[in-house]
Design a binder for these strands. Structure first.
Lengths: 330, 330
DNA sequence: TTGTATGCGTTATCAT
DNA sequence: ATGATAACGCATACAA
């Protein structure tokens, strides 16, 4: 509650002298500087963020916007952002839900990283148009104040399909992501191309939406039509896990009857039996790169570049050779 | 960038009229109100958070402080907070790291929920003393401006130990949590009591710190001394998972030679084989209750109550009957 | 080296 | 019903 005014009174100087002393301005005497600082400490003085940012027109706070707080997925990503931003003197806050979009527009944030389908492109472009800086992780958006740091979805999906084909699978299911998802769209497009490049593969698409229940339902569909080993590309690991759960109650075995590749290589992928083959990338790096570009965008005003985060396939027992022995389950 | 001043100019009225119109003050004519609103929309007017909170001395933003952004643990908890706060007109931001503690002190937040061992008690008490409101989830702290919403750790630990004893185990290990952790301390204390209440049980404590590697190391210790089936209470699930990993490379089997109970009932607990018995509670409810109390504390100034979150034991194959057949592994 | 004065955008009090 | 004005806490250009 103590303000520079209170300090000024106690120190017998003016508020500007206090301000100078507090901000290390060399104009002030070492003596008065010390006096002011000691009084400030005694009064537990803390600068008021609202007043300072009203004046300086910056907050030194960046925001990360997520579609949801749930799921094991974002920890490393956020950690990567936080560390990188911390080095540059920024704090990071995580926001979620359309209600919190106001934090962006009301000027509480110096910049933001977006991984949130609840933002419309129009909303983001309007915000950029008003002079604010953004990094988008989940869409392609061209604007001088926006930089994209995108996963290499196409490479990942291609790896996944090619892995299944290399293991001899000629019947492949693709379990897709939710309608609005940019990642899902890119993965689907690349997966289709990979299938088509190989004329002999039969491919069927099942609608999913990145959560476990949708993977569970997809598995039920696959079982209903089962007449021999199949490959499945689940466009994320959550759905693959849902599929494991569904198959656990049946005579069908992962890696034997149903061969699964996921995407994201989340922690659980390492613990399920058999281990889930999945497309992997460094979440931490993704976050760090995004943060780095955002700071650049703000500091150098427009000199930041779009970036791509590379992926690789991590093998696992969830994909075996397509063999005719497995035609009958159990 | 447009301010009420700009709107006033365009509308040919004073800034106070604009302010009234924008805030729905009935003193202003319906006609001018409409004009002001339409101009505001045309100018993409957004109120400036810094100016408003400088004046009103509130931000309508609450903060949740976490020790780390990593780990699958906090999703539901935060969701519970966000939903509850949203209903009451508050936004929630998630913060982590000592650097971000400034957001608290600088008045950017109307209140905060603390689950972060990097805060010292002194720091929190000082903050409360300055008039701010806090809910703590990870310590006991008595102050008129602080309310506690704590897990019933003692009941949980007691359940865990009693479960092992009920299954016939007479040799029990307790894998503890990190030094500073309030939850760990409470669990340990209750576990010791539960053991002592039953005179015939041999008990040994192994130091852990809530992460997987420490569970892994504890398992190695247990194996080294193995001479018959043992019960293990891992004070959280992460360490239990680490133990699973360690045992996977040995002839010892979970639920046969080493019988494990965890705490938190995290998602992975359902996917490991055999399923991990663990102390469960509703994260979502925990978050919602914390949020509710925080709002109360701010609105009614001191009329909020300390709350306790109840727990229950979820059984799993990780604990079987203590049987002498299992004395020799493999 | 220090003090005075102004303005950031808003709300709110007091006139008119 | 509307306008002029002060105040919130801080930074800073300018005066002394």
């Amino acid at each position: 509650m103590a303000s520079i005014k209170d300090i000024a009174k106690r120190a017998g100087v003016s508020i500007s002298t206090v301000s100078y002393a507090l901000n290390g301005n060399p104009k002030v005497t070492e003596e008065t500087r010390k006096k002011v600082l000691s009084i400030a400490k005694a009064l537990h003085y803390v600068p008021n963020a609202a007043a300072r940012s009203l004046k300086k027109r910056e907050t030194k706070i960046m925001g990360a916007f997520l579609t949801s707080l749930e799921g094991a997925f974002y920890g490393e990503l956020l950690q990567g952002m936080k560390e990188e931003l911390g080095k540059k003197g920024y704090d990071l806050v995580i926001c979620s839900g359309t209600q919190s979009h106001r934090l962006l527009t009301e000027g509480l944030l110096d910049g933001a990283i977006i991984l949130d389908r609840f933002f419309t492109d129009e909303e983001l472009l309007l915000h950029a148009e008003r002079g604010h800086k953004l990094v988008v992780l989940d869409r392609e958006l061209r604007h001088p104040h926006i930089v994209q740091v995108l996963l290499d979805n196409k490479a990942g999906a291609t790896f996944a399909i090619e892995h299944l084909i290399a293991r001899g699978h000629r019947k492949i299911y693709i379990v897709t992501g939710p309608e609005g998802s940019f990642d899902a769209m890119q993965r689907l497009q690349a997966a289709r191309q990979a299938v088509e490049r190989n004329g002999t593969v039969a491919c069927e698409e099942l609608q999913g939406n990145f959560d476990q229940p949708s993977g569970f339902r997809a598995a039920e569909r696959i079982i209903a039509d089962y007449d021999g080993p199949v490959g499945v590309f689940c466009m994320n690991d959550e759905m693959a896990i849902g599929m494991y759960r569904a198959l656990a109650n049946t005579p069908y075995r992962v890696g034997e009857h149903v061969h699964i590749v996921g995407f994201d290589h989340i922690d659980i992928a390492e613990y399920v039996q058999p281990q889930l083959a999945s497309v992997d990338y460094s979440e931490r790096q993704w976050g760090a790169v995004a943060a780095e570009q955002l700071v650049k965008l703000i500091a150098e005003d427009g000199e930041a570049d779009h970036e791509r985060i590379y992926v690789k396939l991590v093998d696992g027992g969830s994909v075996g050779e397509a063999s005719t022995q497995a035609e009958n389950a159990g």
